[in-house]
Amino acid sequence: MSPDKPMKFEKKDLLDIESLSVKEIELILDTAESLKEISTRPIKKVPTLRGKTIVHFFHEPSTRTRTSFEIAAKRLSADTVSISASNSSIVKGETLIDTARNLQSMNPDAIVLRHNAAGAPHMLARLVQASVINAGDGTHAHPSQTLLDIMTVREKKGHLKGLRVAIIGDIAHSRVARSDTIGFIKMGAEVVLAGPPTMIPKGIEALGASVTYHVREAIKDADVIMMLRIQKERQQAFLFPSEREYAQCYGLNTVTLAGARDDVLIMHPGPINRGVEIAPEVADGPYSVILDQVTNGVAVRMAILYLVIGGQR
């Protein structure tokens, strides 16, 4: 952040990575880096968002993202309210639009939405005056996750340009894979996607990534390896035969990792399936920055909230 000419974040909402410019991404990352220190203080609170109200509306289960957003909001002194599908009127049959209109009537400053339908935050953003922050929509986008992933890589590597990022697993059902592909490519990195052909969605190359069905090929020369969670239910959709075979052919273990660079970073958006997509020795090993991602998650979300509702837009 150049101190003489501070850039403002102009958007009302944060819906996806696609709609962010490189400058906006850099602004969020720079802000996150300067806010990160707050979480290490004995008194982890600044008054920046005092008097602001943030609704955390989680229509789908989440531990990490939800806690991360709530902690971020509280460290900035915002008042927070939390709603989940099971404790809201959704179970009584209220539509998203009606819920949104009712929430808007209580004048929150931001609504952080996690939803199982792609495009739900975009619909909400059109309906409410509050800022909408997408905390993950279906298999579409997860912008705050991507921002924390980029922040973590930039922090460890010092730069992003020219890095090779391998994203491995169920690309088809992953919003993280889509947002990370778009985000890392936007920041000048190269992205290779890998997984069984059943999990590679049609036309993903249009995002600018290359595709391979061989994990070793993806890992070779990679500066970053991002492993994705495999959901057991996908077996019923005939995407893979068993967790055992998946672990053998597409999982990351010490044997496959032997083909990687010495300074590789191992990442995972969580929650991890130990022994399926990632072996415990790798998840807990020296290359893993999985917990740094979580730490940076709080900083990135503080930055998002600060930029979207803190300044004068």
Binding site: G119, R175, K202, L207
Partner: peptide, 21 residues
């Protein structure tokens, strides 16, 4: 069709919507 809601292809992939081939 399974859970598909639009045409399968690059656009469905970008929008995160399940495709119908």
């Amino acid at each position: 069709t399974a859970k598909g809601v639009m045409n399968e292809g690059a656009l469905a992939t970008r929008l995160g919507l399940a495709g119908i081939p």
